[in-house]
């Protein structure tokens, strides 16, 4: 039982991270109908920006941990948003009216470019970070121990989710976004600046991915230029599992995948956890292609 709870918490924190990235996939798919394959790299950049910010603050002599964390989070979200915005502006917007395959290829190109860009800038070696937030919360007489970082990940994700849901459902930006999702042309005719809404979608997705990047940096303490690939593919799986285009679906998909990975690692063996995840992707695509919470696409006749 202790072990189960331990894995449950590990899985939830991992799932939170996948969910945060998956939202970026799902939102972009919802609004322009393409899979942004460079999104995993955006998350990787988020992790790097967080690391660089931390080291820069260390050099400046700022060592108070809460401040360091807040600045890291803010800087990471800010700079990564700019990357997200630029990727859309450079690689996707000029291809907006091309056949659907063109932006897809452009996205793959962008992904490779960003990986190599980071490798050139930061080197190919893994970058370690000493634990900033050490310590564990022990539960059940020490049988279950949860690191504060994992706890913080779950909490921050919850807060972001609530804020984000409010943003989408309550504000005019969210309404315009949903409107663009359904009919961009009509939204434009009602005075919505569709290009700007699309840009903001990329910015929001990138900001959430940056949070995920920073959390991974804090939990595992090591990052490299290649982490975006696997995390990206798994988060994409999460988005598909939840139903691409659905925000709660992305979050749910992330959590499901996180839990599967954690339990598989815990009970079967960690070497096969990716197989478990991707088997799930295949099964979902075969039996429920619209995902858990996705709406079936109704063909207009």
């Amino acid at each position: 039982m202790d072990y189960f709870i331990q894995q449950l918490i590990n899985g939830l924190s991992l799932g939170a991270i996948y969910g945060l990235i998956a939202i970026g996939y799902t939102m972009v798919y919802g609004i322009i109908g393409m899979i942004n394959f460079a999104h995993g790299e955006i998350y990787m950049i988020g992790a790097f920006v967080a690391l660089i910010t931390f080291l820069a603050m260390g050099a400046l002599g700022i060592t108070w941990v809460p401040l360091a964390l807040v600045v890291m989070l803010a800087a990471s979200m800010l700079f990564t948003s700019v990357y997200g915005w630029a990727v859309e502006r450079i690689a996707y917007r000029p291809l907006r009216s091309s056949p659907r395959l063109a932006p897809l290829i452009s996205a793959i190109g962008m992904s490779i470019f960003l990986q190599n860009y980071m490798q050139l800038l930061q080197g190919a070696r893994s970058k370690p970070l000493q634990p900033i937030l050490p310590g564990n919360l022990t539960l059940m007489d020490g049988a279950v121990s949860v690191s504060y970082v994992r706890l913080a990940t779950i909490l921050i994700t919850l807060v972001l989710m609530v804020g984000f849901t409010m943003l989408i459902s309550r504000t005019s930006l969210g309404r315009a976004q949903r409107a663009c999702e359904q009919d961009k042309k009509m939204a434009g005719l009602l005075g919505v600046n569709v290009d700007r809404i699309i840009s903001l979608t990329f910015v929001m997705g990138a900001a959430l991915a940056a949070v995920a990047g920073m959390m991974v940096l804090l939990i595992y303490g090591v990052i490299d230029f290649y982490i975006g690939f696997l995390a990206g593919v798994k988060s994409f799986t999460a988005a598909v599992l939840g139903g691409v285009g659905s925000l709660p679906g992305a979050m749910l998909g992330g959590v499901v995948i996180g839990l599967i990975e954690a339990f598989w690692s815990g009970y079967v063996g960690s070497e096969w956890k990716d197989v478990a995840t991707f088997t799930l992707l295949v099964l979902v695509l075969i039996f429920r292609p619209t995902g858990l919470l996705g709406r079936p696409e109704i063909e207009k006749v």
Binding site: S172, R175, A176, R178, A179, A187, L190, G191
Partner: peptide, 14 residues
């Protein structure tokens, strides 16, 4: 949604 512009102006980017 049709009043998006007005609301956007008032809301400072949401």
């Amino acid at each position: 949604v049709a009043q998006h512009n007005k609301l956007m102006d008032a809301s400072g980017f949401a």
